[in-house]
């Protein structure tokens, strides 16, 4: 990762942490219980986005072919 990338990531993590703190002081209206816990959206978002990237990357390793198709 480049230095700029590391700086952006650090800033994003800091903002995320700050919002999780704010989330602790907000009244939630959960639909299933767990989604009303403070910081749920943060960890659920991190996990689901990471899974999406890894699954897409894995699918790409299997199904991605170099070069474009004949009439694309």
């Amino acid at each position: 990762m480049t230095v700029t990338g590391r700086k952006i990531l650090f800033a994003l993590v800091a903002v995320l942490a700050l919002l999780v703190v704010v989330d602790s002081f907000v009244t939630h209206h959960p639909s299933f219980g767990i989604d009303g816990t403070p910081g749920f959206a943060a960890w659920f978002g991190l996990v689901s986005a990471a899974i999406a990237v890894v699954v897409a990357y894995g699918w790409g390793l299997l199904m991605r072919r170099p070069g474009e198709r004949a009439d694309d």
Binding site: L12, L16, G39, A41, A49
Partner: peptide, 12 residues
Amino acid sequence: LMLIAASCIFIG
């Protein structure tokens, strides 16, 4: 929170 979490993963 969802959007920023996704942004963290994008950079990471």
